[in-house]
Computed example of a mutant assay.
Amino acid sequence: MASSRILRSLGLYLVAFVVLAVIIVPLTFSVLGGFRTNIQLVESPVGWPDPWVGSNYTAILRSGAFWRQVRNSTVIALLTAGIVLPAASLAAYVIARYRFRGREAVYGLFTLGLLFPVAVAILPLFITLRQINLLNNPFGVALPQAAFGLPLSIVVMRPFFRAIPREVQDAASIDGCGPFRLYWSVMLPLSRPVLSTIAVITVVGSWNGFFLPLLVLTDPNQHTLPIGVNNISAQYSTDYARVLAYTTLAMVPALLFYALAERQIVSGLTGAVKE
């Protein structure tokens, strides 16, 4: 019995080590590659920087285009989260706490949205955005991203709202809370972990979005960081060190955001599984 437990633990550690290596190795190569020259990369692709070259990073950090793309990505990510959180929380609250005809059908419709990829709707989406003059507009990216983010957000939020004891809702109703007051004053404060989780997932998903911003934002001044990485890869196709440095700097905000919000993500998803 003890030996099987040890073998199981060793297997889990082995899997964790392999997954960690798959993530860490390319990330380390990208970070260190930005501190090297192209000659170093060609002569020794996996070698240590010798000497260390910081000009690749400093040149990008002094670039106005880079910081403009950071600003554009931040604005779109915040807009997307600002749409997803109230819309998803209201929908999940109603589906979880109130009984009405077709409730499960509505919830099933949202879950089907998880199977609907952005690429399938890209042509009608582009035509619609052009007709309502949202091309080269942050809302032209944020609104579709929010729409495609709603299914997952509702699926994650619903168990949280359902797990809140019925007695809490009854006590609030006795005190005179209507449906919206109950949602605003009781349900939302109790659901901060899952709201934080959805906010992190939405922001990082928007930050990493490439296909939709590439389609909607044709003005270079509106480009986001993923598009900037694509542009610099084409512009400096043979300057591998600069491309690696740009890619590393583009990853830093999302990695920092994940690191700072890791506890919220774990607690939010764990609470959703408990139901």
Score class of each variant (00 low, 15 high):
Y98G: 04
N208W: 03
L10M: 12
A234G: 15
K274Y: 11
I23H: 10
Y240K: 06
A2V: 14
I24K: 04
V204C: 01
R158Y: 02
A250K: 06
V42S: 11
L10Q: 11
V15S: 04
Y258M: 11
A259P: 08
Y258F: 15
I6L: 13
L214N: 12
T128N: 07
A87G: 06
G149D: 06
L260M: 08
G268H: 00
R68W: 04
T37V: 05
D219H: 03
N208M: 08
L249N: 05
N38Y: 02
S267P: 09
L85K: 00
P220D: 09
L182I: 11
A91R: 02
H223Q: 10
E167D: 14
V141F: 03
Y246F: 12
P86D: 06
V200G: 01
F29Q: 14
V200T: 14
S4E: 15
P45C: 07
V216W: 05
L260R: 06
N56L: 00
V141Y: 03
R158Q: 09
N56H: 02
L249E: 07
L90M: 15
M157L: 11
N137S: 10
P179Q: 09
L134Y: 03
R263K: 11
S153L: 03
V204W: 01
A105Q: 06
L12E: 12
L7I: 13
V194G: 08
V252Y: 05
I23S: 13
L260Y: 12
Q131L: 05
